[in-house]
Design a binder for these strands. Structure first.
Length: 485
DNA sequence: TGAAATGTTGGGGCG
DNA sequence: ACGCCCCAACATTTC
C-alpha cells in the first residue's frame, strides 16, 4: 500500500510517540503541515508567551523533519478545512491524520473537518497521544464523569499502564509534489519588544530539549521531588509543563521514563504512588473535566459562584499583574511569571488566592492574565487551577481556605532566596522581616535601603481585614443563592 | 495542597 | 501537700 498522507500537526510538535505520524510514515509519503488558525480557538487564541514558544517550537520541528527528509508546510488561515482541502488537491493526498486535542472549540472543529473530509472520499483519522487515557475512558459507577480527583485517579489505575511510547520514524518519504509553505515569520508570533529575552534565557522549546529535560528529571530521586516540589527557590519541579502543552513530549513517554528510572533504582512498586505521577494525574483530571464540562473556561462549575460579589478594581488588578501588591511572595511570583513565562506551582496558588480572596477580583481575570503570560498556558490546566483556587470547581479548595501570604512565604521560602531573586529591592532585608517589610522597624528598613511606598509598595490590603471581607462576600453569595431558590 | 479561633491537657511556679 | 494560675503545646472546630 502506498499513499500520500497529510499529517496535521497541532499540539503534538514531536516526532517520537506520535501515532498520527507513525501511521502516515508506515503507509507512504508524508506531508507535514502546521495550520495557524487563532480564530478557531473559541476565544482562547494563544497568548504572547505561547506564541513565542510556538515560533521556537515550529522552528525546531521543521529542523527535525528536514533531518528525516520531510518539509514542514506552514499556512495561516482561520479556515482549516479549506486549507486542508486545498493541500489535498495540491499534493494529490488521499488521507489526513492528526492527534486529538480536547478543548471544546477544537473538538467541534475537528469533528466538522473529519466528516467534511470523509464526505469527499478522503480518509480522515485521529489518534490519542496528549493524554495517558482518553477523557471518555473514565466513568463513575453511575456512568457520569468524575468530579473528585482521588476517585478519578484510582479509577485510572484500573485501566492499566499506557502503551509504551513509539520511536520517531527514522525516515520520512517525501511526496511527489511539495506544497508551498508560508514563512514562519509571516505568522507574526514574535512580539516587537524585548520581552522574549527573559523567556529565551529560561527556556529552550522543541522536542530535543523536552527529551533532555525529561531525561535529566527522571534520573532524579522521586522522593526528592516530593520533598522539594513546594520550595520555589529550588529547582524541585520537572518544568515539563510547556513541553507537554505543546506536545513536544507526550505523557506516555513521561510515564514510562519515570517507571524505567525507578526500576533501575530498584523501586519496583512505589513509583506508581509517587507524588510526581500524581501531578501528571491532575493534568489528566483537568482534561477530563474540560471535556465533560466544556463551559468551565468561562463559567464556574459550581454555578452559585456566578452570584459572587466580585470587586472590579482595575488599580488593584494592575498592581497584582505588575508584582506590586506589597506582599513579597506574591510579587516575587508575579515577576517571575512576567520575566520567565512561568511561575512555580506553590506560588501560583498563593498569588491566585491573593487575587481572588484578598483583592476579591474574579478568577477569570487571573486566568486570562496567566493565559497571556505563561509559556505553559493550557486551557484545561489553567481552568482547573483557577477554579480550584477560587473554590468554584470540581474537588476545589473550599472557599474559606484562604492562604496567608506571610505564613506561606515563611513556610515555603524560609531562607528568602526566592523573594530576594525576584524582588531585589528587598534583598538586603534580614530573613525575619523579608516576608513582612511593613512590620519591620524603621532602622532595619533604612539599613536595607527600603523606603516603603517608594522603593517597595505598602501592602495593597491588610490581610486579616481582607480575609474577613472575603468570608463576608462568600456569605453574601450564599445568601443570594438561597434567596433565589 | 489553609488559617484562625476555640478547646484541652499537662507541667511548673507559687502562695 | 495542695489548689490555683499561667501558658505552651497540641487537638478540634469553624470559617
Amino acid at each position: 500500500m502506498h499513499m500520500t498522507t497529510i499529517v496535521w500537526f497541532r499540539q503534538d510538535l514531536r516526532l517520537a510517540d506520535n501515532h498520527a505520524l507513525s501511521a502516515a510514515a508506515a503507509t507512504g509519503a508524508v506531508i507535514a503541515v502546521y495550520l495557524f488558525a487563532p480564530g478557531e480557538e473559541g476565544g482562547w487564541e494563544p497568548g504572547g508567551a505561547s506564541r513565542w514558544w510556538l515560533h521556537r517550537s515550529l522552528t525546531s520541528l521543521r529542523q527535525s523533519l528536514r533531518e528525516r527528509g520531510a518539509e514542514l508546510c506552514i499556512r495561516a488561515s482561520d479556515d482549516s478545512l479549506a486549507t486542508l482541502l486545498a493541500l489535498v488537491r495540491e499534493c494529490a493526498a488521499t488521507r489526513v491524520v492528526w492527534n486529538r486535542r480536547y478543548e471544546p472549540a477544537s473538538r467541534a472543529r475537528d469533528a466538522r473537518i473529519k466528516s467534511a473530509l470523509r464526505a469527499r472520499g478522503i480518509i480522515a483519522e485521529s489518534y490519542g497521544g496528549a493524554l495517558l487515557h482518553e477523557p471518555w475512558a473514565a466513568r463513575t459507577r453511575s456512568g457520569g464523569p468524575f468530579q473528585v480527583f482521588t476517585a478519578f485517579w484510582r479509577h485510572l489505575s484500573t485501566l492499566g499502564d499506557p502503551e509504551e511510547p513509539r520511536p520517531a520514524p527514522a525516515q520520512l518519504r517525501a511526496p511527489a509534489t511539495l506544497p508551498v509553505s508560508q514563512q514562519l515569520e509571516s505568522l507574526g508570533l514574535l512580539p516587537a519588544h524585548d520581552w522574549p529575552k527573559g523567556l529565551a534565557a529560561a527556556w529552550t522549546p522543541g522536542e530535543s530539549a523536552a527529551l533532555a529535560r525529561l531525561e535529566e528529571f527522571s534520573c532524579r530521586n522521586l522522593e526528592d521531588y516530593a520533598l522539594e516540589r513546594d520550595r520555589p527557590a529550588l529547582r524541585g519541579t520537572s518544568r515539563l509543563s510547556p513541553h507537554l502543552h505543546f506536545g513536544e513530549i507526550g505523557p506516555r513517554q513521561v510515564w514510562h521514563a519515570i517507571r524505567r528510572s525507578a526500576q533501575r533504582q530498584g523501586r519496583h512498586r512505589s513509583w506508581r504512588d509517587s507524588r510526581f505521577l500524581l501531578e501528571l494525574g491532575w493534568r489528566e483530571f483537568a482534561h477530563h473535566l474540560l471535556y465533560h464540562f466544556p463551559h468551565t473556561p468561562e463559567l464556574p462549575l459550581r454555578a452559585g459562584f456566578e452570584r459572587f460579589p466580585w470587586q472590579l478594581d482595575s488599580t488593584a488588578f494592575a498592581a497584582w499583574r505588575r508584582g506590586a501588591t506589597g506582599y513579597p511572595i506574591v510579587d516575587a511570583g508575579m515577576r517571575e511569571l512576567w520575566q520567565t513565562g512561568w511561575m512555580h506551582n506553590r506560588v501560583r496558588m498563593i498569588a491566585g488566592s491573593f487575587l481572588v480572596k484578598d483583592l476579591l477580583l474574579p478568577w477569570g481575570a487571573g486566568a486570562r492574565w496567566f493565559w497571556d503570560t505563561l509559556v505553559d498556558a493550557d486551557l484545561a490546566s489553567n481552568t482547573l487551577g483557577w477554579q480550584w483556587v477560587a473554590g468554584c470547581g470540581a474537588d476545589a479548595a473550599p472557599f474559606f481556605r484562604i492562604f496567608n501570604p506571610l505564613t506561606q512565604g515563611v513556610r515555603f521560602d524560609p531562607a528568602g532566596a526566592y523573594v530576594r531573586r525576584w524582588v531585589p529591592e528587598l534583598a538586603a532585608l534580614p530573613d525575619d522581616w523579608l516576608h513582612r517589610p511593613w512590620a519591620a522597624p524603621a532602622g532595619v528598613l533604612r539599613a536595607a535601603g527600603v523606603r516603603l511606598g517608594e522603593t517597595y509598595p505598602h501592602p495593597l490590603v491588610e490581610h486579616a481585614a481582607a480575609r474577613k471581607s472575603a468570608l463576608e462576600a462568600f456569605a453574601a453569595m450564599n445568601a443570594r443563592v438561597e434567596e433565589s431558590r
